[in-house]
Design a protein around this nucleic acid. Sequence first.
DNA 1: TGCCAGGCCGGGT
DNA 2: ACCCGGCATGGC
Length: 210
Amino acid sequence: MNIYERLHARFGPQRWWPAQTACEMIVGAVLTQNTAWSNVEKAIAVLRAREMLHLDALHRVSMRDLADAIRASGFFNLKARRLKALVDFIVVRYGTLARMFAQDAVTLRAELLRVNGIGPETADSILLYAGGVPIFVVDAYTRRVFLRHGLIQEADDYHDIQALFMAHLTRDAVLFNEYHALIVRAAKYHCKKTAPDCATCPLGDLPVWL
DNA sequence: TGCCAGGCCGGGT
DNA sequence: ACCCGGCATGGC
């Protein structure tokens, strides 16, 4: 059994991203930057209650009202600007999310990375979880877990790690989706809370690739 | 009570 | 090319 199969056997399908719409997913991707998901949920609940969970609403709302709505997610002034920058880009360049995702993925990724506040993880999360593009998302958990298991090096950057996964896995958006979600699931709730000493590591003692 | 959370940017060496 | 401070709330 490879790592993915072990994680899947242990934790089952995760069904990420936890969002009802593509717009909500994109909002979550920005708000969760270096932030606990529980705080992001509160901010999204406020946005929903204020009927701001739509591209056009987010496009029109003032920076101050947006910052006020997302207060609970932390860094709210910064994130209001970043969210605005992203929404403005989408509305101006493509009009709708469906039209945006019709764009070639390589081109779109480069465009997203040019938006202020959108880095590799946020861009890839949007591509994979909102767009269904088969690209592997790397985050702090992925890095920590695979470093600990000796599968990557300290010096490896985001794209090194991403390239490693993508070189060993089938290019499948459903697989990448589940795999990333399982890594987060295992790191957050198993390694950290249930078994902080890693006594019953879900990856097993001898990790096997693919 | 302090530490941390699903990053990213900008300014300094 | 690195390195680092800043950004801020809520949960444990």
